[in-house]
Write a protein that binds this DNA or RNA. Structure first.
Lengths: 199, 199
DNA sequence: ATTAAATAATGATCGACGTTCAAATGCAAA
DNA sequence: TTTGCATTTGAACGTCGATCATTATTTAAT
């Protein structure tokens, strides 16, 4: 399959090395043939990136159940950064690609992102009473953006300092959840809350 | 100047539209001339992105002084996202560009990032006693990555949902700082802390 | 003012790129 | 065997980043 060839090229040499001719060469076809399978190269890249996101969801949705929210969130986040550090070039393709101005990301891509965001939302659910779905969505988006930022910086080689993304992600998850609990306890009851800020 | 031409092109049509020939055409020179000024196109892009970061530092370092850390952090963050939303294409160039595999970001670029990170560190300083610079650095990096993630998602058009990056950034700053205080209060004294979780 | 040296700018050229398309090939049904 | 359809091809087009010998321009020295 063409996607396998593209996957292999990006995995080894990065998105810059990906070209229609190289994909075709690796699978023993002429370059023009690919345009029967994909609209253009952008289409292929977007599908490849969708697969990367979907594969993450497949493994992330497994480890989800149980226990303290911050614990679950950390486990979720570590599945994420483990995937990113294992295939940095592949994830860098997800991060650094953005579609041309006249294009919108297809439903498959957006759906893959939405499902991952749903995982974060599910983890945060115990902290939000019913009726506060809007707030939960916003907090989940912020959390997701934070993970996204750490992973992006870790995979992009824009910094020389070695990034311990695992520690950073843990820090983000525990600190952010502690803040969430603290703020909610403070706002929820006027009486002094009893140690609800513990992780 | 060549950088002005490049700036104008990216600002209007995005990084994809940037080419040596178009820059040269816009400034009335032949394409080859640019190679007297820059090593190659990557070099030019990196310098342009460095300027974007430096310009942000120039305006961000002005509004720094004073008061509650979370207040200051929010003001800092809003300068950031204001810049990003004002020039999304330009910032998207910063976010989506990553150098070729055999290349390392030059000192100027890395310095520009370091100075911005220093701003975040300075805001966080009141929360950390002397001797905990390592922890402060790590928290500042996490905070920076969070802002980076929100800004990236806001400028990249990978999602169809409208991102209220201003609200997200505010949420991140207040929640994260609340968590920081809560965790530190809990770890610092064994006696039960009195309402230190308030933002 | 005349030369010499150094610098700036050019345009032709190279190989590779994404993309298109008429022609060629393969294949199943008639 | 012949028809029709789908697949695959390879040549071709325009554009790209980059190189380089050649020319033009400025600067310095005589």
């Amino acid at each position: 399959m063409a996607l396998d060839a593209a996957h292999a090229i990006v995995r080894r040499d990065g998105l810059r090395a990906l070209s229609v001719r190289r994909i075709a060469g690796k699978m023993g076809y002429a370059a023009g043939t690919l345009y029967q399978l994909f609209e253009d190269l952008d289409d292929l890249i977007i599908i490849m990136n969708s697969e990367t996101l979907e594969k993450l969801y497949a493994s992330a949705s497994k480890v989800e159940p149980g226990g303290e929210p911050s614990e679950t969130l950390i486990r979720l986040a570590e599945v994420y950064i483990r995937s990113v550090t294992r295939e940095p070039k592949l994830w860098n393709a997800v991060f650094e690609y953005s579609p041309p101005v006249d294009r919108v990301m297809p439903a498959r891509y957006q759906g893959a992102v939405a499902k991952l965001l749903g995982l974060v939302q599910a983890v945060l659910a115990p902290l939000f009473p019913p009726g506060e779905e809007a707030g939960r969505l916003r907090e989940a988006r912020v959390m997701w953006a934070g993970l996204y930022g750490i992973a992006t910086l870790a995979s992009s080689r824009k910094s020389s300092v070695e990034i311990d993304s695992s520690a950073m992600v843990r820090t983000l998850a525990t600190t952010y959840l502690a803040g969430l609990k603290a703020l909610r306890a403070e706002a929820g009851t006027e009486r002094k809350p009893r140690r609800t800020a513990a992780q």
